[in-house]
Design a protein around this nucleic acid. Structure first.
Length: 219
DNA sequence: AAAGTCGTCAACCGCCGTGGA
DNA sequence: TTCCACGGCGGTTGACGACTT
């Protein structure tokens, strides 16, 4: 393991302390619990192992499917992915991805890249929904992320896009104007560009909008 | 049976954003 | 405005068990 394993006695002390004082105040917890561990270790041990309702064991097929879909939408934001998987932690999801899925998907991508036409590395596979940043007309909040589908040439499939008016996408806005840079970069710039000082709420706001869109897509 | 290799996953590390002083 | 403490997160590490040679 990557550190000193927790003993049953330490787990007991941590659990007892959190039952008494509640979650949070991690900086005080080692002292309160009488543990010779740093605040981060205590928090991690609780969140990844001791918290009630944590699901252990193999991932089910539905969970794996969901992880793949969510990762496509969110990238390596493991805590956000895990938030949609009841009982699973970000660490679990991350480990599962690194051990199982990244290799599997890389192998698939290698196979695709040798058998299909040229496509930019960040471009989606055909009919794979991706996020584009759309400036809604009359909106003062700046570009918002929306799901969009692509055809096999790496171009937007307008048919699907325009049929998806229920997502709130402005059909008069041509999707090819949208930004197709790598997702992580767009997220970073999106947050950097925020000037309302409420980035956390805003992040969840658009996460939810993406999932609302995704539901429409998968229905 | 022994040695070497690989896969898994708990734990740690370092960075970032936030809020309060 | 700056500094600092804290919470939170993703990336990485490394021990250990399983598997292969």
């Amino acid at each position: 393991m990557g550190g000193i394993p927790w003993t049953k006695e330490e787990d007991q002390l941590l659990r007892k302390c959190i039952e008494q004082h509640g979650e949070g105040k991690w900086h005080r917890l080692p002292l309160l619990a009488g543990l010779n561990r740093c605040r981060k270790s205590c928090r991690l041990r609780w969140l990844n192992y001791l918290r009630p309702n944590i699901k252990r064991g193999n991932f089910e097929e539905e969970e794996v499917d969901l992880i793949i879909k969510l990762h496509r939408l969110l990238g390596n934001r493991w805590s956000s992915v895990a938030a949609r998987l009841p009982g699973r932690t970000g660490n679990d999801v991350k480990n599962y991805w690194n051990c199982h899925l990244s290799k599997r998907l890389n192998a698939q991508q290698d196979h695709q890249s040798t058998s299909s036409s040229k496509r930019p590395s960040y471009a989606p596979t055909p009919h794979q929904p991706v996020i584009v940043f759309v400036q809604d007309e009359g909106s003062s909040t700046g570009p918002m992320p929306k799901l969009c589908n692509f055809n096999g040439n790496g171009q937007n499939n307008n048919q699907i896009f325009e049929n998806n008016n229920s997502t709130g996408i402005n059909a008069s806005h041509h999707p090819m104007d949208d930004d197709l840079r790598p997702f992580d970069q767009q997220v970073k710039e999106y947050h950097q560009g925020s000037d309302d000082g409420d980035q956390v709420n805003r992040k969840w706001e658009w996460d939810d909008s993406i999932f609302a869109d995704m539901d429409l897509w998968t229905d």
